[in-house]
């Protein structure tokens, strides 16, 4: 029987690559995103094993209700990938409380609420794997990203705390720290900035969303059953 994985931010970028990869591997993917139209067209291209759920991860009631619907429709949820994330970059002097709060709400509080919503079911079944998509920015920092970097570092704390909380229950919790990855967000950067990014990466190139999907696949699979609480950089050597 097909295992179910819940992915947030599944409509675009890295989340989309993860969803596609896991559907190909035979998972049933509950793809959550605020982008309803994109989700719907994905359901058409990815087929029956991709189930779209329109969800704003900052809305507590909506998270609770969506988790209930997902468990009702797909049965046991084996895995959760917290990928939803936004940026509101700016120097701290110019960073409004709204810029700070909105990034915190999606990237960190959203992940917390998703973990909380699905942990009861995982405990009941005594198995599960959670992957939080952090960032190299959590480890290196980045000028103009005080809010984003704080949330991505916060995800590492969440990962390690839950790894310990669930270690005796066959529920693993890990994080991936992507480096510079080719997505809509990075494609919009000026060429000079992109070149500078590539220069800083020891492998001298940006990564692809598929590189992150491969790492997620590994951390959800039975090939990694003794791995919990780790942060796996997928960054071409950037953090070495």
């Amino acid at each position: 029987m097909s295992r179910t994985v819940v992915i947030t931010g599944a409509a675009r970028g890295i989340g989309l690559a993860i969803a596609g990869k896991l559907v190909d591997e035979g998972w049933t993917v509950a793809g959550c995103d605020v982008l309803a139209e994109e989700l719907q067209s994905l359901a058409e291209t990815l087929g029956d094993r991709f189930r779209p759920f329109v969800l704003d991860v900052t809305d507590e009631d909506s998270v609770t209700e969506t988790a209930r619907r997902i468990e009702e429709e797909t049965g046991q949820v084996f895995a959760l990938v917290n990928n939803a994330g936004i940026t509101r970059d700016g120097l701290i002097m110019r960073m409004s409380m709204a810029d700070w709060d909105s990034v915190l709400a999606v990237n960190l509080t959203g992940a917390f609420m998703m973990c909380r919503a699905f942990s009861r079911g995982m405990l009941r079944h005594k198995e599960g794997s959670i992957v939080n998509i952090s960032s190299v920015v959590a480890l290196l920092g980045a000028a103009g990203q005080a809010n984003y970097a704080s949330t991505k570092a916060g995800l590492l704390g969440l990962t390690r705390a839950l790894a310990r909380e669930f270690a005796g229950r066959n529920i693993r919790v890990n994080a991936i720290a992507p480096g510079f990855i080719e997505t809509d967000m990075t494609r919009e950067l000026p060429e000079a900035v992109r070149n500078d990014y590539e220069d800083r990466v020891p492998m001298k190139r940006m990564g692809a969303p598929a590189d992150i999907a491969e790492a997620v696949s590994f951390l959800l699979s039975d090939a990694s059953t003794y791995i919990t609480g780790v942060v796996l950089p997928v960054d071409g050597g950037l953090t070495t």
Partner: peptide, 9 residues
């Protein structure tokens, strides 16, 4: 604490 949570469940 987690044993106790599971007991309640």
């Amino acid at each position: 604490s987690i044993d106790q949570y599971e007991l309640i469940m």
